[in-house]
């Protein structure tokens, strides 16, 4: 892809991001309740003080000026204060972010590791028992409600078999001084194998629950594109040349068959974000998704708005990278 096209695609992001912020801002305008009253809670203050506060927060400005203020603040990650946490909203979000990132990455890795071999084998042995099992499993994978499946996993693996922990991100005894805030990485960097093992055990069940729908979709995509590639002329040609089957699969077929898989994986990484609210709630995972759900019940609106904006911007960027990735892998596609 040429630099010019890349910049053109980058510029197309601007109206989308602007539109997203307008929607979040309008949601904020229509949110019930007076922000000043919510902030003050039970404290009784004079009317002048209340008006001064309102002026300080820019609430007495006309809507379009408030929007520009909101936008310029958002660009500097200033989303106001979370009165519930008595901290700036962005600090609260940032403190929950590593847990969500770690879980989402683990789910992505799980989905890729399961779906690529399964999809390839299902395509190579089309209509075999394995192919049928893969088809039925991926049908179940997209039909299972994540919150329920997570509970079943907890009942079986944690409660009945005692193999894995019920909830949380790590036990107290395996606390390590943070470097990256990703527990798996930090525990390795600090040479704490026990903490690594503990973090890994906590991660397994939420990872499976979050990654299963994605693994199902990717299995279907890999199978379909592998079938497509295997019917191409150059594969027939390679077979005619007498190359070994494994060699053909790995050297010729797989490389091309994985293009759609990688692209769909990049797009679906965005939907992992949407799913983590449910999975984090089921597994008591201290991430951003659970924070948003908790914030709704305590009417912590500034935090909800900041989180929605954050999710949307991340989602838009992920889709953008998926697009770029697709174009780079597929020289035939022109933007």
């Amino acid at each position: 892809m040429s630099v010019g096209k890349f910049i053109e695609r980058l510029l197309q992001l601007i109206p989308v991001l602007l539109g997203v912020s307008i929607i979040v801002f309008v949601m904020m305008l229509f949110t019930p309740g007076d922000p000043v009253a919510i902030m003050l809670g039970d404290q009784h203050v004079t009317e002048e003080l209340e008006n001064a506060l309102r002026h300080d927060m820019g609430l007495d400005l006309p809507p379009h000026q408030r929007f520009f203020k909101f936008l310029s603040n958002a660009l500097t990650l200033d989303f106001g204060l979370s009165y519930y946490h008595r901290q700036p909203v962005w600090d609260v979000i940032a403190s929950r972010l590593p847990a969500t990132i770690e879980l989402s990455l683990a789910a992505l890795v799980f989905a890729l590791v399961v779906s690529i071999p399964l999809g390839v084998l299902a395509a190579v042995h089309k209509n075999s028992l394995l192919d049928r099992i893969a088809t039925v499993t991926s049908l179940f994978g997209v039909s299972l409600p994540g919150f329920w499946f997570g509970i079943l996993l907890i009942i079986f693996f944690a409660v009945n078999m005692h193999w894995l922990p019920v909830a949380g991100r790590a036990g107290f005894e395996s606390e390590v001084a943070p470097i990256t805030h990703l527990l798996l990485v930090d525990s390795l960097l600090r040479g704490r194998i026990d903490a690594f093992w503990d973090a890994l055990r906590h991660l397994i069940l939420p990872t499976i629950t979050l990654g299963l729908p994605m693994a199902s979709i990717l299995t279907r995509v890999t199978r379909a594109s592998m079938l497509d590639v295997l019917n191409r002329d150059y594969i027939t040609f390679a077979e005619a040349k007498g190359l070994s089957k494994t060699k053909i699969l790995i050297k010729h077929a797989l490389k091309n068959a994985l293009i759609p898989t990688v692209t769909v994986a990049a797009i679906e990484t965005g939907s992992l974000l949407g799913g983590n609210m449910v999975v984090e709630t089921v597994f008591g995972w201290p991430g951003l998704g659970r924070l948003v759900v908790e914030s709704i019940f305590v009417r912590n609106y500034p935090l909800i708005q900041a989180a929605v904006l954050f999710y949307a911007v991340t989602y838009v960027m992920l889709n953008f990278f998926a697009d770029i990735l697709y174009t780079m892998l597929n020289p035939r596609v022109k933007l």
Binding site: V16, V20, G270, G274, V292, N319
Partner: peptide, 22 residues
């Protein structure tokens, strides 16, 4: 099409949750 692009920019569940919060 622009409206579609913008709405697609929101993860589904978080968008619904934000609306229900309101």
């Amino acid at each position: 099409s622009r409206l579609v692009d913008i709405l697609l920019g929101f993860p589904y569940l978080i968008f619904a949750i934000a609306l229900i919060a309101m």
